[in-house]
Amino acid sequence: MIEVKDLTKTYGNLAAIDKISFSVPKGTILGLLGPNGAGKTTTMRILTTSLAPTSGKATVAGFDVVTAPQEVRKHIGYLPEVPPIYNEMSVISYLRFVADIKEVPESKKANRVGEVLEMLDLGKMSLRLIGHLSLGFRQRVGLAQALIHDPDVLILDEPTRGLDPKQILEIRKLIKSLSGQRTIILSTHILPEVSSTCDDVIIVDQGKIVAADSVENLSQRLAGGKILDLEIKGSADEIGKALEKIDGVAAVKPLGRESRGVSRFEVSTDGSLETREELFNCVVKNKWVLYQLSPVGVSLEDVFLKLTTKDTAL
């Protein structure tokens, strides 16, 4: 449904996005994850035709964003970073206005506005001025606007920004319920958003894709890499060497010395219980003292930070 190939946007010397390629099959929810300035918004602005790419190609619903922008616009609903609302309008007159410019058939307009108001729980607010609404409600009006013409493709830039925890859950549920026939891209810095809402995830950093996978795979990869935190009393050098020799140990990283001759290590293993036993046996055999042996949980958070801070890759 969405195809992106070598998409690049440069501002002077800065590449806001640099040869990004990905595709989103119909009915999928893709999460674009990345730190500030990663290029999420830039990517979305290109896909929604508000910005022209410097080079590369992007098609939405089969239409090229550069050569057939008008067609693309008919197929997308877009929630920009800042909800595009007019403070001086009432919620309902705003949605009617958007329905007009988005070509919702006149005969279906009233119905559709009603549906969307209900979907976002805005019914009670329909006559209020948008400028008088709280941040979260304004965000919902922004979402309502993106849905009004029932588009095939939804592009949502940080859709849960400014919402309270209860609303966040509701909006995530709504987004999930909207998939099916629709294709959705959402951007976020928040990992739980990706794991709870998305099918696929792309992690971007400094304009480049650093990881792309299904959420399921990524979580599995994370769970698979079992890392243990060990504290052992003894010579750090000897311990390090001995631990590395154990089958099932991939790497040993000394984390420095604690008090009373106790050293800490981060040991990457195959994750099996046998390896843990071997580690314990090794300590006993060498007559060291084991102070601690505990698994370190690797969350999406860690991967995210790891991938988006320079030195390491997954």
């Binding site: 602005r45 929604t48 035709t49 508000s50 008008q70 616009r73 008919k74 997308i76 877009y78 920009p80 970073e81 800042v82 909800p83 595009p84 609302i85 007019y86 403070n87 958007v98 410019i101 988005k102 070509e103 606007q145």
Partner: peptide, 11 residues
Amino acid sequence: NGTAELLKTSP
């Protein structure tokens, strides 16, 4: 206001 984005991405 950011509403330019709405107009520019509407048909």
